[in-house]
Design a protein around this nucleic acid. Structure first.
Length: 219
DNA sequence: CTATGGATCGGCT
DNA sequence: GCCGATCCATAGT
């Protein structure tokens, strides 16, 4: 785990990061990007190590399957960089919208490697070992101390929660698998989940698959 | 260490 | 009422 001080001038990913690329390509490219949240108590954040693509109207596992459109999933129909936060079994999950408005595709951020504000995150998830702080979509939102939908629908370029272009890292290798908890429809064997191979902060990774030398990063 | 079942709660129908 | 893009404690290897 490589810690750093807060970033004083965080810049959201350039809009060109999204344009002209399919959502699965963007998902893999998101691994190693820094996600930060300027919380009232201070900046917290980490490197994205796991994410899943949700491909909109044609995807039986997606909230926008067959263009389902209800108040809670309205942000999916916004422009790239829109924040989509939704409640699930007492936790909150965070998506980034990836395609042009009215094309409701997004990426679920599933796990972070802590990099900024580690002590705050420990405080937000008491008595958890560091490896369990942010290793799941609901866990990472608790670690960031986001427990409501106040930021839902904001563009992350104008929000305290954002994915930034500075200080990114590069995975040595990326693994893809079927999505976690998605058994809907016929896509049970898809490869829409991507994670940094060997990174111990990935959700549900087995201990014997840990790479504790470099956590799966180049240099 | 891994697999399984129950808790839990906001939002749709 | 019902149903999850989840988490964790517990039981079984």
């Amino acid at each position: 785990m490589q810690l750093m001080p807060p970033i004083t001038d965080p810049r959201g990913l350039d809009p060109a990061f999204f344009t002209g690329r399919d959502t699965m390509t963007i998902t893999q490219d998101l691994l190693g990007k820094l996600l930060i949240y300027d919380s009232p108590a201070g900046q917290v954040g980490g490197y994205i190590v796991e994410a899943e693509a949700y491909l909109g109207a044609a995807d039986p596992g997606a909230h926008a399957y067959q263009n389902r459109r209800v108040p809670s999933n309205e942000p999916l129909y916004g422009p790239p960089g829109t924040i989509y936060i939704y409640a699930i079994r007492g936790f909150y999950d965070f998506d980034v919208v990836t395609q042009a408005a009215e094309e409701p595709q997004g990426i679920l951020i599933r796990a972070l490697e802590p990099a900024i504000g580690l002590d705050l995150m420990r405080h937000n998830r008491p008595k958890q070992p560091d490896l369990n702080l942010t290793s799941g979509p609901g866990k990472l939102m608790r670690a960031l101390n986001i427990h409501d939908t106040k930021l839902n629908g904001l563009d992350f370029h104008e929000s305290p929660l954002k994915i930034i272009s500075q200080a990114s890292r590069t995975p040595t290798q990326v693994t893809t698998t079927a999505r976690i908890g998605v058994r809907t429809g016929t896509n049970w064997s898809d490869h829409y989940r991507a994670f940094v191979t060997g990174n111990p902060f990935v959700s549900k990774i087995r201990k014997r698959d840990y790479n504790l030398n470099d956590y799966g990063w180049i240099s």
